[in-house]
Design a protein around this nucleic acid. Sequence first.
DNA 1: CAAAATTCCTGACTGC
DNA 2: TGCAGTCAGGAATTTT
Length: 300
Amino acid sequence: MPELPEVETLRQDLAKEVVNKKIKTVAVTNGRSVRRHPSAKHFRALLEGRTIKTVGRLGKYLLLTLDNKDSLVIHLGMSGQLIRVKNVKEPKPKHTHVVLTFTQGGELRYVDPRTFGEMFVSSPQTAGATPNGSSLPAGMASGDGAALRRLVPELAHLGFDPIEDMMSWDRFGVLLRQRHAGLKALLMDQEFVSGIGNLYSDEILFTAGLRYDRTSDGLSATEIRRLYRAMVETLTEAIKHRGSTLVDEQYRDLFGEAGDYQGSHQVYDREGEPCRRCRSPIVRARSGGRSTFYCAHCQV
DNA sequence: CAAAATTCCTGACTGC
DNA sequence: TGCAGTCAGGAATTTT
């Protein structure tokens, strides 16, 4: 399941591949993937003829801004893939639901077996709640979280982006103490911090040396600092490795290549295997309906 | 058959 | 009693 590092990898590649490309046609073969729109025709009409200007990201959402200030928003859900194809003749994989064909230079395909993901076009002006409708800052390549949020009112509820929106440990501590939630649940709460899912929350908590069920308002100053550092470092490292592709998972980058970070996993999906730090077996627990992996010795 | 995990929704429970 | 926050559980989904 693509989380922040996988989505960021996609963003970087999309920025090189589709910026300044003009969308000639849009084919929707599964309406569920564009379910926010009244119809597939509506979705198509908003995209055809538009040119992609920038590629941003907020949490797990990709934002392709268009030349008319609308944004094509993409969330991959659990099994979504974006594939850049130069040769339009290439056979379409099963579960290809949306295809954007460019005027010159191939197409962008959206593939999503489980259809939890979605695409939609957002208009800053019509969606209201944007008093001054200020336009896109020139030269914005990746995400200025505040600017992106202004552009896409549908994403206004998302919490800060841990990579784009840096903050002090003090500030992070204030946010933690405003809540009284289990650390894992909080890290996965997209309204608190956006982009972290089951895999990376486990990895971050291992690196921080904190158990998943510690409460957010019960951390010492040192622990707060460790958690913040672990969050930024883990995600940054995973981005360097172009994300995680699990054995049974279907995350692939824009060109169909696997990520490389799975080999660095400390706890995720390692039940019973020795902790890389202390050799004691990794424990699997259940939290919020999800599998949780941790080291009972290293994480306190 | 169960498990995997995303967002959204609802109902239950807790503390003040 | 009510309210806000937290949390568990279910739906939608397909593959292994």
